[in-house]
């Protein structure tokens, strides 16, 4: 047992494929670490992950890992069509790197696997490890694991009884322990998505009086929410990011359209999305607005 030299120990980061978001996250998603993405449905978790599996294939000179990735989905079906769409945009916007190899298809470097239960998730861990090990010599070794979402595995099967909660939290720690040791062994970046639950109760208190992280409260769609799976799971991840969406009414009230005799009141709404750091060992409390377009997910300069 010898200590590792901190001078050589630099945390690799995987770009998100957008300079604004990369800057916001100090370079991207860190390797050797578990990053959790919390958001209600329809905010962009899956979009973020899909973009990440593409940008991970970029060479290190462009902030990527030159790596393929393993995408474990627990919510069905897997959005193949969106991945295809994003990969076309990905290729055309980076034609300088990819012109030489015409046969290159980014989708070839994304391994997709569906998992239906928490026990199955734990069961396939050794297989994943073997798979990564076998792949480690290839041109694009696996350097990124995405689990979308971890919440779906746990939110149906378990009852709210002492026995089940205990079993559930022991599974949390086993899955997270396995992922962390794999992340360390192979230098993987691991991204997990999590759902939210509505928060009912006091104003400053979180779920059961627990406040987790910097944000005084997490708001999305005008509701106060917090990450699903409770405090036990919160102990299992290294960083937690939160994505929120809120409908902004623009031009609410009378429309300014010329010739609108009726004077009809209509409201046009615009979805504003925001990515915030709840907690992370290397990031301060901050947030960044982003948009989702056909080409992917992009941060907005403030």
């Amino acid at each position: 047992m010898t200590p590792e030299s901190l001078l050589q120990l630099r945390t690799e980061k995987c770009t998100i494929g957008c300079p604004v978001l990369d800057r916001f996250l100090a370079g991207g998603i860190p390797c050797n670490s578990l990053t959790e993405l919390v958001a209600e449905s329809g905010t962009g978790k899956t979009q973020f992950c899909l973009q990440l599996v593409l940008s991970a294939q970029l060479p290190p000179s462009r902030g990527g890992l030159s790596a393929s990735s393993l995408y474990i989905h627990t919510e069905f079906p897997f959005p193949f069509r969106r991945l295809r769409q994003l990969s076309t945009a990905f290729l055309s916007s980076r034609s300088d790197i990819f012109t030489s190899s015409n046969s290159y298809d980014p989708c070839d470097n994304v391994f997709v696997h569906g998992v239906y239960s928490a026990d199955e998730m734990l069961d396939i861990m050794p297989k994943i490890e073997l798979f990564i090990q076998v792949n480690s010599k290839s041109q694009f070794p696996v350097k990124l694991i995405v689990i979308d979402s971890i919440a779906a595995l746990f939110r149906s099967e378990f009852e709210n009884t002492g026995f089940d909660l205990k079993r559930r939290s022991s599974l949390f720690f086993k899955i997270s322990g396995n992922l962390k040791s794999m992340a360390k062994r192979f230098g993987l970046a691991v991204v997990l998505t999590n759902q939210v639950v509505d928060l009912i109760g006091g104003i400053t208190e979180g779920l059961n009086g627990i406040k987790v992280g910097n944000l005084s409260s997490l708001n999305s769609s005008g509701r106060r929410v917090c990450a699903a799976l409770g405090i036990g799971w919160a102990n299992c991840v290294n960083s937690r990011l939160f994505m929120s969406r809120n409908e902004d009414m623009i031009g609410g009230g009378r429309s300014g359209m010329v010739g609108d005799e009726e004077g009809g009141v209509y409201q046009q709404s615009k979805t504003r999305r925001r990515l915030s750091v709840v907690f992370a060992p290397h990031l301060p409390e901050s947030s960044c607005e982003f948009v989702i377009t056909r080409e992917g997910i992009f941060g907005l300069e403030t």
Partner: peptide
């Protein structure tokens, strides 16, 4: 100092 990291939250850039 000896730092024993069991969770992987130790980040050199932060140090």
């Amino acid at each position: 100092a000896i730092y024993i990291d069991t969770e992987g939250s130790f980040m050199v850039e932060r140090v």
